[in-house]
């Protein structure tokens, strides 16, 4: 699949936005007193640099067509699952169940995406893996915290694998008049969700006063939430020409993506606070772990997928 004009324009827009961010960061850095740099600016600098890398990898995957995107999101699931299960206490009796989760469940779920086998894709983890994990754990013959352990493993698989796999699953939707262009839906979803994260951060830093959930996530403010979701939804509405939607539909779907993204961030923060950590990992400089970067996509992807599938196919 060759990248079409609309995809190129969107990726070009992202690159222009990143160039602007790098420019702003450079100006902010030059305004700092010589020899010192505030932690906020240093973190911003690291974040923008990491964005360049992430956009490069994502664009490359997108331009290689379906298989590239599927492999990229399979790897994303693998690394997210790794961070999630590292934070989650399990017992030695769960070891083999974890082995299956990493080396069988993750690849199989993405094979189903590649095969475009919707029926099994939709129930494999919620039904069959849900049955298999407690069976494998029970064979370990350790009853201590049994329900808790199996629930945690199932949760990890739902969030890191099942939900994330709904992003490349957009490629299997058969939308009339949109054949061969589904990669733009992947780009639309990821762009709106990530832009909403960035804009919530920017609005929050600029005029955030009232905290939404100080215990769970001290950086989330009402100003950041409202400014971020609305401005990202506006951008999403403005991208209607690249999608099968009209401007209103694009705006409404974007709003749902940003809302689910916000709640995804909140839920994943609650888990981090419970485990007493700030980030899920340290793989992405300035951002934390993979899970810290995709928490919004995890929650937005299945809802967006099913709305598009229900109303547009």
């Amino acid at each position: 699949m060759n990248p079409d004009r609309a995809t190129l324009i969107m990726v070009g827009g992202i690159v222009a936005l990143l160039a602007l961010s790098s420019l702003i960061t450079a100006v902010l850095k030059s305004r700092q007193p010589t020899g010192t740099i505030s932690p906020v600016i240093a973190n911003l600098d690291a974040r923008v640099r990491a964005w360049w890398v992430m956009v490069a990898i994502f664009s490359a995957a997108l331009f290689t067509g379906g298989l590239g995107s599927i492999i990229l999101f399979a790897l994303t699931s693998f690394f997210a699952l790794r961070e999630f299960l590292t934070l989650t206490p399990t017992r030695p009796a769960d070891h083999r169940a974890l082995f299956w989760a990493f080396f069988v469940v993750v690849p199989l779920q993405y094979v189903l995406v590649a095969q475009q086998w919707y029926g099994l894709f939709a129930i494999f983890i919620p039904v069959y893996v849900f049955l298999f994990i407690p069976i494998r754990c029970a064979l370990g013959a350790d009853p201590q915290h049994f329900l808790e352990r199996t629930a945690k493993i199932q949760w990890a698989l739902m969030v890191c694998v099942y939900f994330v796999s709904h992003v490349p699953a957009l490629l299997m939707l058969d939308i009339p008049g949109f054949h061969g262009a589904n990669a733009r839906l992947v780009l639309f979803l990821v762009l709106v969700a990530q832009l909403s994260d960035v804009l919530q951060y920017v609005w929050g830093k600029l005029c955030g006063r009232h905290k939404i959930a100080p215990v769970l996530s001290p950086s989330k403010t009402w100003e950041g939430f409202i400014g971020g979701t609305l401005s990202a939804s506006a951008v999403g509405a403005g991208l209607w020409w690249a999608t099968p939607f009209n401007p209103w539909q694009a705006g409404a779907l974007s709003f749902i993506i940003t809302l689910m993204g916000f709640f995804g961030g909140l839920v994943m923060s609650a888990i981090k606070r419970d485990r007493g950590v700030k980030d899920y990992g340290a793989l992405i400089e300035g951002h934390g772990g993979v899970m810290d970067r995709i928490d919004s996509i995890c929650f937005a992807a299945p809802v967006f997928f099913h709305l598009v599938r229900f109303f547009f196919t």
Binding site: F78, R82, E83, L85, T86, T90, P92, H95, R96, L98, F99, F102, G281
Partner: peptide, 18 residues
């Protein structure tokens, strides 16, 4: 830390935790 979860005593299959 965590290596006993990656490859515990008595098992030969590693799990890729951090």
């Amino acid at each position: 830390d965590n290596l006993n979860r990656i490859l515990p005593k008595g098992d030969f299959l590693p799990v890729p935790l951090v």
